[in-house]
């Protein structure tokens, strides 16, 4: 079943369009990641999906019915969709009172309220903190209580803005586990924002890439600010800020520096030995920072002045099999570079 359908949805702040979505559908019961760099419009879109913000233009269908943007209509929808902030805030009450808040305003009887609060706290592993004052909790504990508060009202959709951005590693893994569990066990649709591609891949079964408010067709990675200059031979050269200079395949670029953003396709990059053809054009020495397995591909991050991700087949990776810290070179084919 289609949960959300967005058509021509835009959000404009101070004459700046921060969200611009021609068409987007989100299926019920899924785990969706809204992935993109800072300023991509992820949080604004999440606020719109949470019915906390109205789009400037466009139409939204929720469970195949057009969204009624009247105050009453939005409140009805908000009772089914709950959002947890990137830095959630708890009311200056006890943890249990915080978790009970949504139930209390729904006039759930006290006995049932108590049971549901206990269940929600148990699910996030915060039972022991039930009577603690909420404002005394750490960042990770606050995030977990905020999750419990959202879960207590049994929403159809849970929206999380950067759910692990403000917590330590221990809480991060716990929160990701909880989110996965509630999606699988309770069938709650999960939509979360992230700028961490790995986290999105680990938790989501669908990823929506956003760039400058628009859905991007491909994942946004290896995106750098760069300056285009004219090289000695008249060809265009792309200089990444504090990073390498990449010769581009076209001529006729004005000698005046031009600030751009470039994207380097990780699938087209080549990993070669440290000394192999070291004088070749667009070959940059570097050091392996990390390597992870991701959906059958090996994702390798190399520091070549900037951190660059390579997506390699297992066979290609095994040809060199670099260890973390090993020196390697990255070959950047000119056609891997795309101006944004």
């Amino acid at each position: 079943m289609i949960l959300y359908r967005l058509s021509g949805v835009t959000k404009v702040y101070d004459k700046r369009t921060v969200v611009d979505i021609a068409e987007m559908t989100i299926e019920a019961g899924g785990r969706y990641a809204l992935l993109g760099p800072n300023g991509a419009g992820k949080t604004t879109l999440l606020n719109i999906l949470a019915f906390l913000d109205r789009p400037t233009a466009g139409a939204i269908d929720f469970e195949s019915s057009p969204v009624d943007f009247s105050r009453k209509g939005l409140q009805t929808l908000r009772r089914r969709v709950v959002m947890v902030d990137q830095h959630p805030i708890l009311f200056t009450r006890t943890v249990a009172q915080n978790v009970a808040y949504g139930l209390k305003i729904r006039r759930i009887p006290a006995k049932e309220r108590k049971t549901r609060v206990a269940e929600a706290l148990e699910r996030v592993g915060m039972t022991a903190f039930s009577s603690a004052m909420a404002h005394r909790l750490s960042g990770g504990e606050t995030q977990r209580v905020a999750l419990a508060r959202a879960l207590a009202v049994s929403p159809s959709v849970l929206l999380c803005d950067e759910p692990t951005a403000s917590v330590d590693a221990e809480h991060q893994s716990a929160i990701l586990r909880i989110l996965k569990e509630i999606n699988e066990a309770k069938g709650i649709s999960l939509i979360f924002t992230s700028h961490d591609r790995r986290q999105a891949a680990a938790l989501a079964n669908e990823t929506i890439h956003l760039n400058q408010g628009r859905p991007a067709s491909a994942r946004q990675e290896n995106v750098f600010a760069a300056v285009i200059t004219s090289g000695r031979d008249g060809r265009a050269v792309c200089r990444i800020e504090n990073g390498p200079r990449i010769a581009l395949p076209y001529d006729g670029v004005s000698a005046i520096p031009r600030k751009v953003r470039i994207e380097i396709d990780s699938n087209l990059l080549l990993l070669v030995g440290p000394t192999e053809g070291s004088s070749s054009e667009n070959r940059f020495p570097g050091r392996v920072i990390q390597a992870t397995e991701e959906k059958g591909q090996i994702r390798c991050t190399v520091d070549i002045g900037v951190w660059i991700d390579l997506s390699l087949s297992e066979a290609t990776y095994r040809k060199i099999s670099p260890m973390i810290g090993d020196r390697v070179s990255v070959q950047v084919p000119a056609d891997a570079v795309r101006l944004i």
Binding site: L52, Q75, R78, R79, D85, Y101, I105, V153
Partner: peptide, 9 residues
Amino acid sequence: KTALTLGAD
């Protein structure tokens, strides 16, 4: 925002 998202009028 928290009160609103938790369904408060």
